[in-house]
Amino acid sequence: MSVLAYTLAIFILLTAIATALFRDVLSAIVVFGAYSLGMAILYTFLLAPDVAMTEAAISAGVTTILLLLTISRTTRPSTDRIFERVNVPAVVVVGAFVTVLGTLVLPEMYAVGDQTAPIWGWPGLDISPSVYYLENTVADTHAHNAVSAVLASYRGFDTFGEAIVIFAAAIAVLIVLKREVFT
């Protein structure tokens, strides 16, 4: 990863901490939007443009708008303090969790693009699913975006379930709010 990618990772870390620490909810929402945009750019560095677009559209766009809409219906407590008081027990628990992840789990993970990673296949397997999709997508589906081919064709039934979940989410929101119209 380049210097730019590391700068981006530091930016994401800082905005994540700022989101947790800002006392003013509006400030927290704004830095959270910046965090999501940073994540979207990081995904493009990891060669996942489809995920990056989803992150930018849903997380930075829709979520920020919905959060802004929600706090516009509440009152803003006036305060002189910029940052929230740090909750020491919570920091200890989260710190311990991050330390365990960083020292025990992260070193065990494969590097980005590592050819020995299980996604490229494992002993006793003729061809791994990922390699199959990459090699046969165009022949099988005549689509050039392998991600779309997996979502819409190879795993079409899963996508059907996901579409129904989104539909159910909208219905559930309307039921909770006791509304009978979509707009």
């Binding site: 829709v62 708008i65 919905l66 809409l69 929600t70 219906r73 989104i166 539909f167 989410a169 909208a170 929101v173 309307l174 709010l177 006791k178 509304r179 009978e180 119209v181 979509f182 707009t183």
Partner: peptide
Amino acid sequence: GVVVTLFFAMAAGFTPER
């Protein structure tokens, strides 16, 4: 459709009909 629905539902809150 769902993105638009979520937005207008959130904006309306607990009002029964538009």
